[in-house]
Design a protein around this nucleic acid. Structure first.
Lengths: 256, 256
DNA sequence: CAATCTTTGTGCACGCGTTCACAAAGACAT
DNA sequence: ATGTCTTTGTGAACGCGTGCACAAAGATTG
């Protein structure tokens, strides 16, 4: 047993570990696909395979939601779809604004995955006056000046930032001041926000860099050993000249 | 966030925990900003604040790379930029192909963050014959028929999938067969890939759903208690009518 | 009704990641 | 040199997440 339950966990929430919450949308997608094929029930084993996770993990995840399965049978697909949707808050309508209608912002506005799950794009906002009124995804772009009014009028609590990095912090502050409490940030910057505001970030370049790391490891396995030996021993910083790399230099490093 | 799929007893090879690797690009970005302002050295405290992490975590992360700091002073910015770049494999050139030039694919092609860090877009590929030859981001789109040739000729090992969900699995198989060993997947599907291939996924709708969950929790705190009581006791599955959600149905899950 | 079979729900152990707290290392002043 | 001050690097404790393995629950069959 152990686990000094003496004090409430910092996250006072009644349950559902963060890792589980992050997987619920995955299960939901797999279940939706089954639902469309009119599959009535599914076992943890099958569903886990479809979602790309371990079946024990899936069962444990579901156990946090309640006992929705039937032993010897599995889970009722429709019922589970509803339960997960409800748990995620997808049974209600979430108006969303997208700020920064560049290439990415336009792609997001056209993204079907938003509208299809309870998310409704309430407005597209851009700082460029030339964009104002221009239709994107069948919706006129509005100027940043309108930001506060749009958010208040529509009761928007979720904002998507797709601006250049330099504008992101300021945009987030305006969003928050106007009432937004959750932000999905695509700009390559660390947003500074007050407590109570949730921020999730999606950084395309970071994902690629992580892939590059593993790719490099795969590629140079024998040579990596040599390179590692060379890098672990001699290099001393803050001594003479730091010595930039001997190989191709790495100059400009600017995100979009 | 994106998660690699393969669960090897992995990350074993003497080094650098996965969680640390995922943060290195973050540090690199903060350091690059400092470098541009010609800041010579930085303490773990300052850098941690800029990267949005705990300073102890940052120091431990760096300790996996080696002892690159100077006690009483901090870290040499330029030197650290180089060390992290090298560790991530960014000192070499990584040709990348983007498959699926819809709204999202086009946005990615125009994304500055790729080209600026050792990643070079070698080709844009789309299945639509009407797209062939059409310039996107100053580069002609090529037809899927050319996929294998492009990958082999350019020595591409990293592929980006921005196709509709239905096409993603097949595209990944062709990419892998042609020699790609790392995939960044934007399509809302679980890719089935052989061992040795790394997959990271970026799913816009999943991130929003996670935000909605927390948003719901914030919004209904008092009512959540009532709702929880109602959901923990009575609901029995596999009994009456499962009751789909009261909201609109959730149909196809198609990106761009 | 009893026996058997299937699949859930979970106790338990383990490993990774995070955080604290501090000794050691070096810079800097006197 | 010696002492003081700053900041790193890390040992150790802790908590979360994962996966195994199995008992309990229910379906199903004879």
């Amino acid at each position: 047993m152990a686990t000094g339950r003496t004090h409430r966990p910092a996250t006072r929430s009644r349950g559902i570990p963060e890792a589980t919450v992050a997987r619920l949308p995955l299960y939901l997608r797999a279940l939706t696909a089954l639902s469309e094929r009119s599959v009535p029930t599914v076992s943890s084993e099958e569903l886990a395979a479809a979602a790309g996770v371990n079946s024990a993990k899936l069962r444990k995840d579901f156990s946090y939601l309640g006992s929705y399965g039937t032993r010897g049978v599995g889970y009722d697909v429709e019922y589970l779809v509803y339960q997960i949707s409800r748990e995620l808050g997808l049974t209600q309508d979430w108006p969303v604004v997208i700020v920064g209608i560049g290439n990415l912002g336009a792609a997001l506005a056209n993204y079907g995955g938003f509208a299809s799950r309870g998310f409704r794009v309430a407005a597209l906002i851009d700082a460029d006056p030339a964009m104002a009124g221009k239709p994107v995804a069948g919706m006129p772009v509005q100027h940043t000046d309108e930001l506060e009014k749009i958010i208040e009028d529509n009761g928007v609590s979720i904002g998507v930032i797709a601006t250049p990095a330099g504008a992101a912090q300021q945009v987030s502050e305006r969003l928050i001041a106007a009432g937004v409490t959750s932000i999905l940030n695509f700009a390559p910057t660390v947003l500074q926000v007050p407590d109570g505001v949730d921020v999730r970030k999606v950084d395309l370049s970071i994902e690629l860099q992580i892939l590059a790391f593993h790719e490099q490891r795969k590629a140079g396995d024998a040579e990596a050993a040599a390179a590692a030996a060379a890098s672990v021993l001699p290099p001393r910083a803050a001594e003479g000249t730091p010595r930039k790399g001997p190989d191709g230099d790495v100059p400009a490093v600017m995100p979009a």
